[in-house]
């Protein structure tokens, strides 16, 4: 079993969302949804988010984190915590790609 499989099996892999990223995305959500505070377990749609707001959020994420997310990625994972994990995964897949291109 690899280290990563083990962490996932223990259910602790979620703990590794960078705290400062969680904070920043929470700010973006709060500003867009016009709410005061967003907790990690809050769902985008429960807070009154719609598809227009979602596009605004995704565009901010693209600017600040340099990562392209599909609209439906949020439908699959509507909580802030899950949303951050999706960005983290897309981001790391992206980094590998950049590197390969640089190498070829």
């Amino acid at each position: 079993m690899t280290y990563k499989d083990q962490r996932v099996a223990e259910g602790v892999e979620d703990a590794v969302v960078p705290p400062e990223m969680l904070k920043r995305i929470a700010e973006i959500w709060a500003a867009t949804l016009k709410v005061e505070q967003v907790r990690p377990e809050d769902s985008f749609f429960d807070l009154g988010g719609d598809s227009m707001m979602l596009m605004m959020v995704l565009s901010r994420v693209r600017e600040e984190f340099n990562v392209e997310l599909a609209q439906n990625s949020v439908f699959r994972s509507p909580s802030l915590q899950d949303f951050c994990l999706t960005i983290a995964e897309a981001k790391s897949a992206d980094d590998d790609l950049d590197f390969d291109e640089g190498f070829l």
């Binding site: 590794v16 969302v17 960078p18 400062e20 990223m21 983290a88 981001k91 790391s92 980094d95």
Partner: peptide, 8 residues
């Protein structure tokens, strides 16, 4: 690579 910020 356990560091969750990106190696940028």
């Amino acid at each position: 690579h356990q560091i969750p910020t990106y190696i940028q």
